[in-house]
Write a protein that binds this DNA or RNA. Sequence first.
RNA 1: GGCCCUAUCGUCUAGAGGUCCAGGACGCCACCCUCUCAAGGUGGUAACACGGGUUCAAAUCCCGUUAGGGCUGCCA
Length: 486
Amino acid sequence: MSNIRVRIAPSPTGKFQIGNARTALFNFLFAKKSGGTFIVRMEDTDQSRSTKESEENILKSMDWLGLSWDEGPTIEGDGYKGSFGPYRQVERLNTYDEYINMLINEGKAYKCFCTTEELEEERSKQKEKGIAAPKYSGKCKNLSKEEVEANIKEGMPFTVRFIIKPEKVKFNDLVKGDVEIDMSNYGDPVLVRSDGMPLYNFVVVIDDLLMKITHVIRGEDHISNTPIQIQIHEALGNTPPKFGHIPLTLTPDKKKLSKRHGAVSIDEYREMGYLKEALINFLVLLGWSSGNEQEIYSLEELINVFDLSRMQKSNAIFDIERLNWLNGIWIRKKDINEIVDLSKPYFEKMNVKSDQEYLNKIMLLIRDRLKYLSQIPELTDYFFNEGRLDKQKLVFKKSTAETTKKGLEAACNKLSSLGRWPESTEDFSTILAGAVADNGMANGDVFWPIRYSLSFSETSPSPAELLWALPKEVSLTRIKKAIDAL
RNA sequence: GGCCCUAUCGUCUAGAGGUCCAGGACGCCACCCUCUCAAGGUGGUAACACGGGUUCAAAUCCCGUUAGGGCUGCCA
């Protein structure tokens, strides 16, 4: 076990998102690769947006993906594992108080009595003056002790602000390299809201410090928060952790992935029938590559080959076609029984009560055609229900109604006179081919109408496969019906 | 606007100065297989954003421009 400790720190303000999952995955891989510890911490200080359901969804989604955490809330949500808890920020409020007081007493933070209105006015005035980078003036920093006490006595609400040192902050980012930011562009950030609730930029530092986080791997949307957090760490006399800012994933129109741009939660992809293996595989390739030409990776393989230094520096666009391809690959890689199990929810939605054997046959026939499991209803309806027979479509394009009828009859006769119903697709194939040969016909005169009459579809598995899967009586009835229709 | 990050086929990417008139994958197109649709196989289409340097040599290093993204909250 190495002393490397990383965390994923989602705010439970909605379902677990694709972007979060990707960040979690990179953290997970980084930790597992090095024998380190992977921690989940709920950043729920925004109580107006945080919900228990969101937390549950995040935990369950991570668990489903196989991103198991060593420390953090338990999946049941009734406790914690790990000895650096609690792992929910609202349960650590007392701790934050201690550190806030320390900073204030040491003159590194101050109480600010400016109201939201005053701040807005200040900002708009600065904009009017054409000031390029409006920021808080820091006027409350200069309040005397007496003024502060008087304000408090009057019951004036206040925030606590951290005093930014107006100097350049440099850090070596694990993925971006050297980054330098001039803090003279920053106003003093609020650490604690006027209602007493501490804010992200502060709590994240305290938690990372107390939880002994060694590497902070997060989205690059946090890069401009990093120098603030570094200065807070330093104000506390702590050496900041190492930072690695991974590029973001964008929608096809190059916008930040969000609810407005289609499905974004892991839940939704799961419901559509994307396999966790495909999602993991897809997500890791969004911003990372091994350097060789292998594209298909299991989570276990990734733990071995993952290397943070091979992260891409630029943003990546979420391409659903690539996910579809990977999902198809993983669907085909799975054992058929496993696929049937994964397919059950979709059959249940169809109110299908077939036995395992029938479902097995069906999935054997359609799995090559599946991009995702929720396509099952549309692709398998004819296995359970009669469809509409279109006389025009019954005739192969190079054939005629007359020949088609003859072909169907020939096949029907052969099938009906069978002593024992065959058990392999090859046998059915042979029988159909026999009907073709006996009558000097083309394959299309027999194969096509049989297939169409059994599936009511112009695109389906082969007739031999359908005969193999469908119950004998169903097949025979459908073929006879087709003959009558001509 | 300011600050920061980034820049190879439509998309995901390989490439860490010569082996690159740039390789792989997805998609798309064609062909093979074939009664159909998939799957599979084969082939094809398509990129170093632009302009300056540095160097014998640049996709690779430097500068600038342009473009995209992020941040600019008493959200995270």
